[in-house]
Design a protein around this nucleic acid. Structure first.
Lengths: 137, 137
DNA sequence: GCTGATCGTCAGTGATACTGACTATCTGTG
DNA sequence: CACAGATAGTCAGTATCACTGACGATCAGC
Protein backbone atom coordinates (compact mmCIF):
# COMPACT_ATOMS: atom_id res chain seq x y z
CA UNK A 1 0.00 0.00 0.00
CA UNK A 2 1.49 3.27 -1.15
CA UNK A 3 -0.01 5.52 1.52
CA UNK A 4 1.76 3.42 4.17
CA UNK A 5 5.16 4.21 2.80
CA UNK A 6 7.10 6.69 4.86
CA UNK A 7 8.75 8.23 1.83
CA UNK A 8 5.41 8.98 0.22
CA UNK A 9 3.95 10.48 3.38
CA UNK A 10 6.96 12.65 4.10
CA UNK A 11 7.36 13.88 0.56
CA UNK A 12 3.74 14.87 0.15
CA UNK A 13 3.42 16.36 3.60
CA UNK A 14 6.55 18.39 2.96
CA UNK A 15 5.56 19.66 -0.45
CA UNK A 16 1.97 20.39 0.52
CA UNK A 17 3.05 22.35 3.55
CA UNK A 18 5.80 24.17 1.67
CA UNK A 19 3.27 25.28 -0.91
CA UNK A 20 0.81 26.49 1.69
CA UNK A 21 3.47 28.25 3.69
CA UNK A 22 4.91 29.92 0.59
CA UNK A 23 1.50 31.27 -0.31
CA UNK A 24 0.97 32.63 3.19
CA UNK A 25 4.37 34.33 3.22
CA UNK A 26 4.19 35.76 -0.30
CA UNK A 27 2.49 39.00 0.80
CA UNK A 28 5.55 39.72 2.93
CA UNK A 29 7.83 39.15 -0.05
CA UNK A 30 9.45 36.28 1.81
CA UNK A 31 9.98 32.64 0.90
CA UNK A 32 9.88 29.93 3.53
CA UNK A 33 13.60 29.45 3.20
CA UNK A 34 14.25 33.12 3.74
CA UNK A 35 12.10 33.15 6.84
CA UNK A 36 14.06 30.17 8.10
CA UNK A 37 17.28 32.14 7.66
CA UNK A 38 15.81 35.11 9.53
CA UNK A 39 14.75 32.72 12.29
CA UNK A 40 18.25 31.35 12.62
CA UNK A 41 19.67 34.87 12.68
CA UNK A 42 17.10 36.02 15.21
CA UNK A 43 19.07 34.56 18.10
CA UNK A 44 21.06 36.60 20.57
CA UNK A 45 24.14 37.30 18.49
CA UNK A 46 25.05 37.57 14.81
CA UNK A 47 26.26 34.45 13.04
CA UNK A 48 28.76 33.82 10.28
CA UNK A 49 27.19 32.59 7.06
CA UNK A 50 28.60 29.13 7.57
CA UNK A 51 27.20 28.86 11.07
CA UNK A 52 23.80 29.92 9.83
CA UNK A 53 24.07 27.40 6.99
CA UNK A 54 24.90 24.50 9.26
CA UNK A 55 22.11 25.32 11.71
CA UNK A 56 19.72 25.38 8.82
CA UNK A 57 21.11 22.22 7.28
CA UNK A 58 21.91 23.83 3.95
CA UNK A 59 25.14 24.11 2.05
CA UNK A 60 27.31 27.19 2.54
CA UNK A 61 27.12 27.87 -1.22
CA UNK A 62 23.34 27.93 -0.92
CA UNK A 63 23.55 30.37 1.97
CA UNK A 64 25.38 32.87 -0.24
CA UNK A 65 22.35 33.31 -2.46
CA UNK A 66 19.96 33.40 0.50
CA UNK A 67 21.92 36.16 2.21
CA UNK A 68 22.26 37.97 -1.14
CA UNK A 69 18.47 38.03 -1.47
CA UNK A 70 17.85 39.09 2.11
CA UNK A 71 20.47 41.81 1.88
CA UNK A 72 18.93 43.09 -1.34
CA UNK A 73 15.61 43.40 0.51
CA UNK A 74 17.31 45.25 3.35
CA UNK A 75 16.47 42.59 5.93
CA UNK A 76 20.04 41.63 6.87
CA UNK A 77 23.44 43.18 6.42
CA UNK A 78 26.83 41.56 6.10
CA UNK A 79 29.59 42.85 8.30
CA UNK A 80 33.18 41.82 8.93
CA UNK A 81 33.92 39.61 11.91
CA UNK A 82 36.58 41.54 13.87
CA UNK A 83 38.15 38.37 15.25
CA UNK A 84 38.19 36.37 11.99
CA UNK A 85 38.25 38.35 8.80
CA UNK A 86 37.41 35.38 6.64
CA UNK A 87 33.92 35.53 8.03
CA UNK A 88 30.91 37.69 7.31
CA UNK A 89 28.78 38.25 10.34
CA UNK A 90 25.17 38.51 9.24
CA UNK A 91 22.98 40.85 11.29
CA UNK A 92 19.25 41.38 11.17
CA UNK A 93 18.27 44.92 10.33
CA UNK A 94 15.39 46.55 12.14
CA UNK A 95 13.14 45.82 9.19
CA UNK A 96 14.47 42.25 9.17
CA UNK A 97 13.40 41.76 12.74
CA UNK A 98 9.97 43.19 12.00
CA UNK A 99 9.52 40.76 9.13
CA UNK A 100 10.81 37.91 11.26
CA UNK A 101 8.13 38.61 13.85
CA UNK A 102 5.40 39.00 11.30
CA UNK A 103 6.60 35.94 9.35
CA UNK A 104 6.72 33.80 12.47
CA UNK A 105 3.16 34.71 13.24
CA UNK A 106 2.12 33.77 9.70
CA UNK A 107 4.11 30.57 9.77
CA UNK A 108 2.46 29.48 13.01
CA UNK A 109 -0.91 30.25 11.53
CA UNK A 110 -0.11 28.24 8.38
CA UNK A 111 0.94 25.34 10.56
CA UNK A 112 -2.34 25.45 12.45
CA UNK A 113 -4.46 25.40 9.33
CA UNK A 114 -2.31 22.75 7.70
CA UNK A 115 -2.69 20.52 10.73
CA UNK A 116 -6.29 21.47 11.36
CA UNK A 117 -7.26 17.80 11.41
CA UNK A 118 -5.03 17.19 14.45
CA UNK A 119 -5.49 18.25 18.03
CA UNK A 120 -2.87 20.40 19.73
CA UNK A 121 -1.58 17.34 21.55
CA UNK A 122 -1.27 15.42 18.33
CA UNK A 123 0.62 18.27 16.70
CA UNK A 124 3.24 18.28 19.40
CA UNK A 125 3.34 14.48 19.26
CA UNK A 126 3.99 14.62 15.52
CA UNK A 127 6.75 17.16 15.91
CA UNK A 128 8.33 15.26 18.73
CA UNK A 129 8.34 12.01 16.78
CA UNK A 130 9.93 13.70 13.77
CA UNK A 131 12.49 15.39 15.98
CA UNK A 132 13.44 12.13 17.63
CA UNK A 133 13.77 10.33 14.31
CA UNK A 134 16.07 13.10 13.09
CA UNK A 135 18.17 13.44 16.21
CA UNK A 136 19.64 9.98 15.90
CA UNK A 137 21.58 10.63 12.76
CA UNK B 1 13.18 27.87 17.76
CA UNK B 2 13.97 26.43 14.38
CA UNK B 3 13.64 22.76 15.28
CA UNK B 4 10.03 23.38 16.26
CA UNK B 5 9.06 24.49 12.80
CA UNK B 6 7.08 21.95 10.88
CA UNK B 7 8.65 22.89 7.58
CA UNK B 8 12.13 22.28 8.91
CA UNK B 9 11.22 18.93 10.42
CA UNK B 10 9.42 17.68 7.34
CA UNK B 11 12.06 18.81 4.92
CA UNK B 12 14.93 17.24 6.79
CA UNK B 13 13.07 14.06 7.61
CA UNK B 14 12.13 13.73 3.97
CA UNK B 15 15.58 14.35 2.58
CA UNK B 16 17.35 12.19 5.14
CA UNK B 17 15.04 9.30 4.53
CA UNK B 18 15.18 9.71 0.75
CA UNK B 19 18.95 9.55 0.90
CA UNK B 20 18.95 6.43 3.05
CA UNK B 21 16.31 4.72 0.98
CA UNK B 22 18.12 5.54 -2.27
CA UNK B 23 21.31 4.00 -0.93
CA UNK B 24 19.48 0.86 0.13
CA UNK B 25 17.79 0.47 -3.25
CA UNK B 26 20.85 1.25 -5.37
CA UNK B 27 22.01 -2.40 -5.49
CA UNK B 28 18.74 -3.25 -7.23
CA UNK B 29 19.31 -0.51 -9.79
CA UNK B 30 16.14 1.21 -8.60
CA UNK B 31 15.47 4.70 -7.34
CA UNK B 32 12.87 5.35 -4.67
CA UNK B 33 10.60 6.97 -7.20
CA UNK B 34 10.83 3.99 -9.50
CA UNK B 35 9.96 1.64 -6.68
CA UNK B 36 6.97 3.85 -5.91
CA UNK B 37 5.80 3.47 -9.50
CA UNK B 38 6.18 -0.30 -9.32
CA UNK B 39 4.19 -0.26 -6.08
CA UNK B 40 1.36 1.63 -7.70
CA UNK B 41 1.39 -0.74 -10.65
CA UNK B 42 1.50 -3.78 -8.40
CA UNK B 43 -2.24 -3.64 -7.81
CA UNK B 44 -4.71 -6.02 -9.37
CA UNK B 45 -4.96 -4.53 -12.84
CA UNK B 46 -2.81 -2.47 -15.17
CA UNK B 47 -3.13 1.32 -15.03
CA UNK B 48 -2.87 4.02 -17.64
CA UNK B 49 0.12 6.31 -17.17
CA UNK B 50 -2.08 9.16 -16.07
CA UNK B 51 -3.84 7.05 -13.45
CA UNK B 52 -0.49 5.92 -12.09
CA UNK B 53 0.70 9.53 -12.06
CA UNK B 54 -2.27 10.81 -10.11
CA UNK B 55 -2.07 8.01 -7.55
CA UNK B 56 1.57 8.86 -7.07
CA UNK B 57 0.93 12.56 -6.96
CA UNK B 58 3.30 13.37 -9.81
CA UNK B 59 2.72 15.15 -13.10
CA UNK B 60 1.85 13.11 -16.18
CA UNK B 61 4.91 14.53 -17.97
CA UNK B 62 7.08 13.23 -15.15
CA UNK B 63 5.50 9.82 -15.43
CA UNK B 64 6.64 9.58 -19.05
CA UNK B 65 10.29 9.57 -18.02
CA UNK B 66 9.66 7.20 -15.13
CA UNK B 67 7.95 4.65 -17.36
CA UNK B 68 10.68 5.15 -19.98
CA UNK B 69 13.32 4.20 -17.43
CA UNK B 70 11.40 1.22 -16.08
CA UNK B 71 10.66 -0.03 -19.57
CA UNK B 72 14.33 0.26 -20.53
CA UNK B 73 15.14 -1.93 -17.54
CA UNK B 74 12.54 -4.46 -18.60
CA UNK B 75 10.43 -4.02 -15.46
CA UNK B 76 7.26 -2.75 -17.10
CA UNK B 77 5.86 -2.74 -20.60
CA UNK B 78 3.49 -0.33 -22.27
CA UNK B 79 0.51 -1.75 -24.07
CA UNK B 80 -2.48 -0.25 -25.83
CA UNK B 81 -5.72 0.07 -23.89
CA UNK B 82 -8.29 -1.76 -26.07
CA UNK B 83 -11.13 0.44 -24.88
CA UNK B 84 -9.32 3.80 -25.20
CA UNK B 85 -6.50 3.99 -27.64
CA UNK B 86 -5.23 7.28 -26.29
CA UNK B 87 -4.01 5.39 -23.25
CA UNK B 88 -1.01 3.24 -22.58
CA UNK B 89 -1.71 0.53 -20.08
CA UNK B 90 1.43 -0.13 -18.09
CA UNK B 91 1.97 -3.71 -16.95
CA UNK B 92 4.55 -5.13 -14.60
CA UNK B 93 6.76 -7.74 -16.21
CA UNK B 94 7.72 -10.85 -14.29
CA UNK B 95 11.06 -9.28 -13.50
CA UNK B 96 9.26 -6.12 -12.48
CA UNK B 97 7.21 -7.99 -9.94
CA UNK B 98 10.32 -9.70 -8.59
CA UNK B 99 12.01 -6.33 -8.10
CA UNK B 100 8.86 -4.89 -6.56
CA UNK B 101 8.88 -7.65 -3.94
CA UNK B 102 12.57 -7.32 -3.25
CA UNK B 103 12.37 -3.53 -3.24
CA UNK B 104 9.44 -3.52 -0.83
CA UNK B 105 11.41 -5.70 1.56
CA UNK B 106 14.36 -3.32 1.35
CA UNK B 107 12.17 -0.26 1.74
CA UNK B 108 10.56 -1.69 4.87
CA UNK B 109 13.99 -2.44 6.26
CA UNK B 110 15.19 1.10 5.49
CA UNK B 111 12.15 2.45 7.25
CA UNK B 112 12.91 0.39 10.33
CA UNK B 113 16.50 1.54 10.58
CA UNK B 114 15.55 5.14 9.85
CA UNK B 115 12.99 5.10 12.64
CA UNK B 116 15.11 2.98 14.96
CA UNK B 117 14.66 5.54 17.71
CA UNK B 118 10.90 4.97 17.72
CA UNK B 119 8.91 1.99 18.93
CA UNK B 120 6.64 0.12 16.54
CA UNK B 121 3.64 1.85 18.08
CA UNK B 122 5.21 5.24 17.60
CA UNK B 123 5.99 4.46 13.98
CA UNK B 124 2.37 3.71 13.20
CA UNK B 125 1.35 6.76 15.19
CA UNK B 126 3.65 8.93 13.11
CA UNK B 127 2.33 7.52 9.85
CA UNK B 128 -1.24 7.86 10.96
CA UNK B 129 -0.74 11.50 11.96
CA UNK B 130 0.88 12.30 8.62
CA UNK B 131 -1.86 10.48 6.75
CA UNK B 132 -4.56 12.38 8.58
CA UNK B 133 -2.89 15.73 7.97
CA UNK B 134 -2.70 14.90 4.26
CA UNK B 135 -6.18 13.48 3.87
CA UNK B 136 -7.86 16.76 4.63
CA UNK B 137 -6.68 18.54 1.54
C1' DG C 1 57.33 31.96 8.08
C1' DC C 2 55.18 27.81 5.84
C1' DT C 3 51.75 24.40 5.27
C1' DG C 4 47.33 23.04 5.60
C1' DA C 5 42.68 24.18 6.73
C1' DT C 6 38.57 27.28 6.62
C1' DC C 7 35.30 31.07 4.81
C1' DG C 8 32.82 33.23 1.25
C1' DT C 9 32.18 33.29 -3.63
C1' DC C 10 31.20 31.75 -8.24
C1' DA C 11 30.65 28.74 -12.38
C1' DG C 12 29.12 24.54 -13.82
C1' DT C 13 26.26 20.29 -13.26
C1' DG C 14 22.49 17.18 -12.29
C1' DA C 15 18.02 16.20 -10.51
C1' DT C 16 13.25 17.48 -10.34
C1' DA C 17 9.03 19.39 -11.81
C1' DC C 18 6.52 22.30 -14.30
C1' DT C 19 4.35 24.92 -18.73
C1' DG C 20 3.00 24.96 -23.35
C1' DA C 21 2.44 22.88 -27.60
C1' DC C 22 1.59 18.95 -30.55
C1' DT C 23 -0.65 14.56 -32.23
C1' DA C 24 -3.92 11.06 -31.72
C1' DT C 25 -8.03 9.80 -29.89
C1' DC C 26 -12.41 10.04 -27.44
C1' DT C 27 -17.10 12.17 -26.23
C1' DG C 28 -21.11 14.74 -26.80
C1' DT C 29 -24.10 17.78 -29.57
C1' DG C 30 -26.65 18.61 -33.19
C1' DC D 1 -22.77 11.45 -39.47
C1' DA D 2 -19.79 15.79 -38.73
C1' DC D 3 -17.79 18.74 -35.82
C1' DA D 4 -16.10 21.00 -31.30
C1' DG D 5 -14.06 20.43 -27.23
C1' DA D 6 -11.73 17.54 -23.94
C1' DT D 7 -8.18 14.07 -22.73
C1' DA D 8 -3.73 10.86 -23.03
C1' DG D 9 0.93 10.64 -24.02
C1' DT D 10 4.97 13.01 -25.67
C1' DC D 11 8.49 16.44 -26.09
C1' DA D 12 11.05 20.90 -25.72
C1' DG D 13 11.96 24.53 -22.98
C1' DT D 14 12.32 26.62 -18.37
C1' DA D 15 12.80 27.33 -13.33
C1' DT D 16 14.35 25.86 -8.94
C1' DC D 17 17.32 23.65 -5.96
C1' DA D 18 21.38 21.78 -4.16
C1' DC D 19 25.71 20.16 -4.92
C1' DT D 20 30.93 19.88 -6.69
C1' DG D 21 35.12 21.98 -7.69
C1' DA D 22 37.81 25.82 -7.94
C1' DC D 23 39.51 30.35 -6.39
C1' DG D 24 41.37 34.15 -3.31
C1' DA D 25 41.63 35.70 1.31
C1' DT D 26 42.53 34.60 5.87
C1' DC D 27 43.56 31.84 9.96
C1' DA D 28 46.09 28.27 13.00
C1' DG D 29 49.80 25.17 14.23
C1' DC D 30 54.46 23.83 13.94
Amino acid sequence: MLADRLGYLLKHAQSAFAERSAAALAPLGLTGRELAVLTVLGGSEALAQQQAASRLGVDRTTMVALVDALEAKGLVRRGPDPVDRRRNLVHLTERGRELLDEGSRIHAEAERTFLAALTADEVSQLKSLLRRALEVR
